[in-house]
Design a protein around this nucleic acid. Sequence first.
DNA 1: AATTTATGTCAGTCATATTGACGTATCTTG
DNA 2: CAAGATACGTCAATATGACTGACATAAATT
Lengths: 182, 182
Amino acid sequence: MTDINFSGMAAKPDSQGSDHPSSAAGPSDLRWDIIELLFFAYRDFVGDADQELEAFGFGRAHHRVIHFVTRYPGLKVADLLDVLRITKQSLGRVLKQLLDEGYIVQKTGNNDRRQRLLYATPKGEALVAKLAGLQTDRINRAVAGIDAEGVETVRQFLRAMIDRDDPDKVLEAIFGARKTKE
Amino acid sequence: MTDINFSGMAAKPDSQGSDHPSSAAGPSDLRWDIIELLFFAYRDFVGDADQELEAFGFGRAHHRVIHFVTRYPGLKVADLLDVLRITKQSLGRVLKQLLDEGYIVQKTGNNDRRQRLLYATPKGEALVAKLAGLQTDRINRAVAGIDAEGVETVRQFLRAMIDRDDPDKVLEAIFGARKTKE
DNA sequence: AATTTATGTCAGTCATATTGACGTATCTTG
DNA sequence: CAAGATACGTCAATATGACTGACATAAATT
């Protein structure tokens, strides 16, 4: 079975890739390998959490919300929308579920009573820690053969892959760079 | 505005993360930084293509299909299902659109006439090259300050993040490892 | 001839996302 | 203080991309 002509292939359609000046490497030198490695790496990375989430009746959307609320306590709804890049309406249902089931609590802002600051409950933190544990295990396996300097290179690469124009609050916290812009 | 208590925070809920023995680092030492860098890096990485795809009336599902068909000509439908980890029914509509609009053609298998081998048309290849160009530009920017050895470390990390048990045909092609298993 | 395999399709459902409109409480500004 | 802007919530309708389950067909295998 599976007698496909699949030996040493991966034909590269470089023919018409000339309208985007690839900066450093060669002419129309597309980085197919890294593109696909990113796809598979992320697919399996999020897959770890997916299985666990099923047991809770949650999906990836819930994970993203509870993760960032746990990590950045006091996050506003508007901040969360910036980070997740979704609309208020999409967030609404997921957030409501997490509130109703006691994974997140809201507190009215002190300075601005319109704001609903979000905090994870111990229950929510436990779930996030469990999921982060699974993902950490995968990361630890991945960096097992890489020295400290190499891991820093990986971090540098990932940081440089992220858009820095108009960063949201979480990104500002991650990068520590408070752009003079407001 | 946005006067949130957001200065040097990122509280780490390490308290209950003790039921997953983190292999190498410390006890309950979760890799929050890499977890979040992966999230943002992938978010922006796929975001590049999303904008372009909108102009064609396509979504991410179309991109994934046409990408792998372009890269691995002669892919069978069943192979594609393994790679994308979706069901036949989900693939159906997306694949039909790409066929109808002339981005992909089917050819009956030579050895097995039940198979529909998938090939990208020039039109399909052009779209894939355009999208890969955008993503390559981002990757090139990201590795601008990293030497060849460092880039190889990044590749090593990404490869090690991928599940290797029961790899599909595309992964076998990427890793070149044909596991003695069939 | 019977079975398995590769593919396609129909029908229904679910999760997550969208846009647009509207309401309400609250803060800011003229 | 009145007017407007802001933060948030919600209602309605819709789209995408996924799912399960069932069934059909052609072709290969046994």
